[in-house]
Amino acid sequence: MPLILDPNIDDADGFYDELLAAHHGLTKAESDALNARLILILANHVGDRAVLRQALEVAREK
C-alpha cells in the first residue's frame, strides 16, 4: 500500500488542534521529546517499511 498523501483524517482542524494542545505548556525540550515519542508510536503503527521509507523521503522535501 503506498503512502497516503491525500486527505485521510476526519475533521483535520480538530486533529490539528489536539496536536497543538498536546504540546501546550511544554518547554522546547519537552516538546521535542513528545514529538520523538509520537513519531516512534506512529511508525510502529504503520509498520510497513516501504511506507515508512516513502514518508521519510516526503518529509525530507522542503
Binding site: 521535542d32 521529546a33 520523538a36 515519542r37 513519531i39 516512534l40 508510536i41
Partner: peptide, 10 residues
C-alpha cells in the same frame, strides 16, 4: 539523543 531517550522512555 532525543530519539534514544524517547525509545527508553516508551
Amino acid at each position: 539523543q532525543i530519539f534514544r531517550d524517547a525509545v527508553l522512555g516508551l
